[in-house]
């Protein structure tokens, strides 16, 4: 597996973490009502979306490099 393939895998896992962490923070906000929770939750989801766009860009840009 090349760095390209490992990077794509890593970004996929990071997107899952960002979305999961966002959900965890929103749940924390629903329970405790702390502003920091909602801010972190929204930020995390935004980061997940941003990483998704980045992933598309990386796949496009590095398409000529082998995944092996």
């Amino acid at each position: 597996m090349s760095l390209k393939a490992f990077h794509i895998l890593f970004i996929c896992v990071s997107i899952l973490l960002a979305l999961g962490f966002g959900a965890w923070e929103i749940r924390a906000f629903a329970q405790a009502g702390a502003t920091s929770d909602i801010l972190l939750g929204v930020f995390s989801w935004a980061a997940g979306v941003a990483l998704s766009f980045y992933l598309r860009r990386v796949i496009k840009k590095l398409k000529n490099i082998s995944s092996l």
Binding site: M1, F6, H7, F10, V13, G20
Partner: peptide, 24 residues
């Protein structure tokens, strides 16, 4: 540089698992 990058990604991936397990 690619090989160093592979190691670095592994280290980062470990953290991606450590963070939710220990902090959340």
């Amino acid at each position: 540089v690619e090989v160093a990058g592979l190691f670095w990604h592994f280290v980062d991936l470990v953290w991606i698992f450590l963070f939710p397990v220990l902090y959340l």
